[in-house]
Design a protein around this nucleic acid. Structure first.
Length: 447
RNA sequence: UCCAGCGUAGCUCAGGAGGUAGAGCAGGUGCCUGUUAAGCACCGGGUCGCAGGUUCGAGUCCUGCCGCUGGAGCCA
């Protein structure tokens, strides 16, 4: 008598050898095709996709009747034998509805209908982005979204793993803040029992306090920016990891940042080949992400733009076209350092001649642009005060921040890495809105 | 916020020299034992974004508004 394995997922079938084992799966009907007395059901259970085969001569009439009436997203419990099937190998030239079958299928013995779904809105056909975003709560069931969000999970886990190994502690910065961390950008205002508070646009100033208390810290969470920007690289709510290290210089955080990015990519390649295949990602581009990355100064980047025939005024900040030109010129992430102080915030440490700052941006390759921004921080009380006055920063609200330069100030540095942009690059998405479960965009926040 | 484009069936779109709508998919009913966004046959499905205007007549032309998409600025 064959033992039936219950409590199993499609992921288990993919990872363990369960050929010729009888198993029970529960999941949602993805698609049904039939050819007379044989029916093919594609099942998804949240961990993957598998084809079920219902043959007339193999099952009771009752089972056949259920199989005949299945609709998309109906819920079933199915018992059957796992078999290998070479016909189900992924073929790039044949669209598989973007489902990658796993080399196995299940010959069904029994089938129970647990929930009958009717008129599921997302059909196996093209849909417009407006419709899909309105149905984001259902769209996340689709194969590509499934793949992207599983890769996002790997990326977040790998970041925590990496920082833990490096001796960091997670230090939570507040989301409600009494003042702006970066004076320039717009903030979401909150009524806090009659006072004005803001949703945090960066945990950086708080992790600086953390670094002087715990040496190596990072915060990891959502941040909010009320910028009226409407591009493929912007969300109003996005996730950022911000490591900050005491006694560190610009060079030190460049090392940490590129090691971290390289670790993230290696973990995705280790854990998510299936998902990358669903996304039809060119894996060789990711395998190429090896240390060290390219490193140039702002000055050299401007020269590069000029050599490409691009008009650009020295002293301006790089916009989307510049970032794209620069990042397309390299096959690995590119680190740009020493920007002019006039285009960077007050807390960045000045270099010797006080013209440039000790900062770095990291641009992802393939035209993806900035994913990391960081700097060594100004640790001298008087210089910081001078910079704050120059930029009209309200000193009263930042007294606590100045205090950090008054009581045991040390050189320190840190950076922020944007999660959605990183996901977007690794998955080669055309927009960051697909890199987060429920994107918050300008004028679009449903569901 | 600025520039450009688009709003027709549940979805993706066609019609667009003004004469009151059409295809695929999805849904329904059949046929087919290896399909793979299967195929074939038949069926049901529409205040053509909203408001006004021109006209005998507007999905089609004009004006305004609303919604969405793409791009720019700002940034991660």
């Amino acid at each position: 008598m064959l033992e039936v394995i219950n409590n199993i997922t499609i992921d288990d079938i993919r990872k363990n050898n369960l050929v010729n084992k009888e198993v029970i799966l529960r999941g949602w009907v993805w698609n049904v095709r039939s050819s007379g007395k044989i029916k093919f059901i594609v099942l998804r259970d949240g961990t993957g996709f598998i084809q079920l085969v219902v043959e007339k001569n193999n099952v009771d009439n009752a089972v056949l009747e259920i199989a005949e009436k299945l609709t998309q997203e109906s819920v079933i419990e199915v018992r059957g034998i796992v078999v290998e099937n070479s016909r189900l190998k992924f073929d790039k030239n044949k669209s598989n509805f973007n489902v990658v079958f796993i080399g196995y299928e299940m010959i069904v013995k029994d089938l129970k209908l647990l929930y009958k779904t009717q008129d599921y809105p997302i059909t196996p056909k093209e849909h417009g982005i407006d419709f899909l975003l309105d149905n984001r709560h259902l769209w996340i069931r689709s194969s590509k979204q499934f793949a992207i969000l599983r890769i996002r999970n790997t990326i977040k886990n790998s970041i925590r793993e990496f920082l833990n190994k490096e001796g960091f502690i997670e230090f939570d910065s507040p989301i409600l803040t009494p003042s702006a961390c970066e004076g320039t950008t717009t903030l979401f205002e909150i009524d806090y029992f009659g006072d004005k508070m803001y949703l945090s646009q960066s945990g950086q100033l708080y992790v600086e306090a953390g670094a002087l208390a715990f040496n190596k810290v990072y915060c990891f969470g959502p941040t909010f920016r009320a910028e009226k920007s409407k591009t493929r690289r912007h969300l109003m709510e996005f996730w950022m990891v911000e490591p900050e290290i005491a006694f560190a210089t610009l060079d030190d955080i460049i090392d940490i940042a590129q090691n971290m990015i390289s670790y993230i990519v290696s973990k995705v390649l280790e854990n998510n080949l299936y998902e990358l295949l669903i996304l039809e990602r060119d894996i060789s581009k990711l395998e190429n992400i090896k240390l060290p990355f390219y490193r140039i100064t702002y000055k050299e980047a401007v020269e590069l733009l000029h050599s490409k025939g691009h008009e650009f005024e020295f002293g301006q900040d790089f916009g989307a076209p510049e970032e794209t030109i620069i990042s397309e010129a390299f096959d690995k992430p590119i680190i740009i350092t020493h920007y002019p102080k006039s285009i960077k915030p007050f807390y960045m440490k000045l270099d010797e001649n006080r013209e440039f700052v000790l900062n770095m941006d990291i641009l992802a390759p393939e035209g993806y642009g900035e994913i990391v921004g960081g700097s060594q921080r100004e640790d001298d009380y008087d210089l910081l005060l001078m910079r704050m006055k120059e930029e009209n920063i309200p000193l009263k609200e930042y007294q606590w921040y100045l205090d950090l330069r008054k009581y045991g100030s040390v050189k320190h540095a840190g950076f922020g890495l944007g999660i959605e942009r990183t996901v977007s690059w690794i998955c080669k998405l055309d927009h960051v809105r697909q890199a987060i479960p429920f994107p918050r965009m300008l004028y679009r926040y449903y569901p």
